[in-house]
Amino acid sequence: MKSQQKDYAQISKSNYKSYVFETSPKSSHWKNMIWAFLIGGLICVVGQLLIALFIKLGLDKEMSSTLASSVLVALAAITTGIGIYDRLGRFAGAGSTIPITGFSNAIVAPAIEFRSEGLIYGIGAKMFTVAGPVIVNGVSVAVIIALLTALFGG
């Protein structure tokens, strides 16, 4: 904690925030990025392998992609349920949040957590507390992009 700190003669309310910022341990961006790349990449490789497998089994390409996504979502839901996915997320960060598995985790985790408040006010009301903002903002941005495309995209 000491190493990266300037020498402060006085710590007051006015310089406290910068003092705390310099004193607090930082997370290593390089380490985080490498972990995110490895875990995120690994999830994508599994998805790609699944697509290849389904094509080999005789399904068409579009059907194979859809099925691969479904399998990944199911796997993430199961690993969330047995308490593995959150451990992955603690060091993988964006690597486990960004792929479709992260979305599955974001819906299943609150569903498990709020089961104790019942099916309606628990699971029903709280299931989308984490994923909800993503959906709302995602749909809003999609509408804006679609409008812009319709107007200027020709």
Binding site: A92, G93, A94, A109, I112, V130
Partner: peptide
């Protein structure tokens, strides 16, 4: 904070 099983990154401090 968040549900227990949510895979969130924990800040080192």
């Amino acid at each position: 904070r968040f549900p227990l099983e949510l895979g969130v990154f924990r800040s080192p401090h």
